[in-house]
Design a protein around this nucleic acid. Sequence first.
RNA 1: GCUCCCUUCGUCUAGUGGCCCAGGACACCGCCCUCUCAAGGCGGGAACACGAGUUCGAGUCUCGUAGGGAGCGCCA
Length: 467
Amino acid sequence: MTVRTRFAPSPTGYLHIGGARTALYCWLQARHARGQFILRIEDTDRERSTDAAVQAILDGMAWLGLDHDKGPIFQAQRMDRYRQVAQQLLDAGKAYYAYESKNEIEAMRTAAMAAGQKPRYSGASRERNEPYRDDPNRVIRFKNPASGSVVFDDAVKGRVEWNNAELDDLVIVRSDGSPTYNFAVVVDDIDMRITQVIRGDDHVNNTPRQINIYHALNAPVPGFAHLPMILGADGQKLSKRHGALGVMQYSEDGYLPHALLNYLVRLGWSHGDQEIFSIHEMIELFDIADVNQSASRFDLAKLGWLNQQYLKNDNPLDVARELAWHMRRLGIDPASGPCMVEVVIALRDRVQTLKEMAQRAKIWYAPIEQWDEKAVAKHLRAAGAAALLQAAHATFASLAEWSPQVIHAAIEQLAAGAGVGMGKVAQPLRVAMTGTQVSPSIEHTIYLAGRDTALRRIDDAIARAQA
RNA sequence: GCUCCCUUCGUCUAGUGGCCCAGGACACCGCCCUCUCAAGGCGGGAACACGAGUUCGAGUCUCGUAGGGAGCGCCA
């Protein structure tokens, strides 16, 4: 049997970290089994669903590379199908019309609470066999079994047993004729022949009543896997206020999609001591049954480390392409300076994101924006610094070849000639090149600036040293 | 209130009764390397929530307690 999984977000916002991990696990499970991955948009709530959110989800999935084999399928376009199935249930005596007002239902809930039960619908209309009539309160409720229990074997939670007595008769069709979530998912998952339902564990409690609907429809029940939540760094539930960023925000912040995927796959799942997984390895090794049962926290530091691993090990040509995008975002033309690949190699050990890399690369593409006065005071106005810079200027101007190796040798000679250590020469030059005391190795910093810029900056620095 | 779920270093996790006085990774601290910052190398501190029970033996099985979470909608 072909394995079929689906990711079914509701379009009420962007694709966040939790949704992205759910999507990843669904995708991995399907790819691992060489099955199908279906994308379904659960937009039965017309109030809250927006086209912009649909687009944001699609963009997020595309950026992560989680491609689907079918879809996106919109629930809003399947209304007739839900009504048809509801009618089937009605005809079979497995669902019924109910006309209680909101107030009446509210009263039932309060009464149940007072009796020490959970707030629930009393089932008042269950045996009344009320015919259809035009009434603003008309809904269709599912006739849940009154006794016995529902048992399912959750791929991550294990065996879960639920007493039917705990379940009330839920609404499956609203007064406006639209289906409710619990009903629409079941109809869809049956129609799409989903074999494994993978979703957040906030749905565990819905599962027993959904299984009862499967039974009422004489449909095979799929397997279930309920994923634990992802918490914020502070252990609080992830919300918009608590760093629950949309996936595309990570793109803008300079993370590589593969790094995010790698971080996400390890959040709740592991394969021995392995930390780095190629997409191919994830697909080979992932099994939903190995997923953890407890919630985990989102740790930006580890994401940063992983991102750097990819920055360091990916082909610099590919990284350069990404870097160019971030540089343009900073208003810099990547063509106005040195070869991007060389810049990537110079900076990749020193930053964790592409955004930082672009920020640091600016010194080779645009004039120095800001001088670190402490650096100027310490290294440019130091005794002998100006003379060293003069000497460096002369040496660099006469170099036959402009390469890091040649520049390195020249600086060593300069230091030896002045009877000082490398630091005494490198630091003033570094401040001259960058305005700060931090940069890649001095020879690369100078080399990447290009001879003309390097000489000009040394002149500026001498002027500044004497100011 | 009721029902369900969860609990190993600060964080992500390994661990499926003896290989564990608990391993790896991130973070943190120290040392080395060194022109700065990193990267890298080496080293360090750091955890089985608690209590009973089963067993020759429990992080691993059972029960309880505590703590955390989810759900109980004509929201998904």
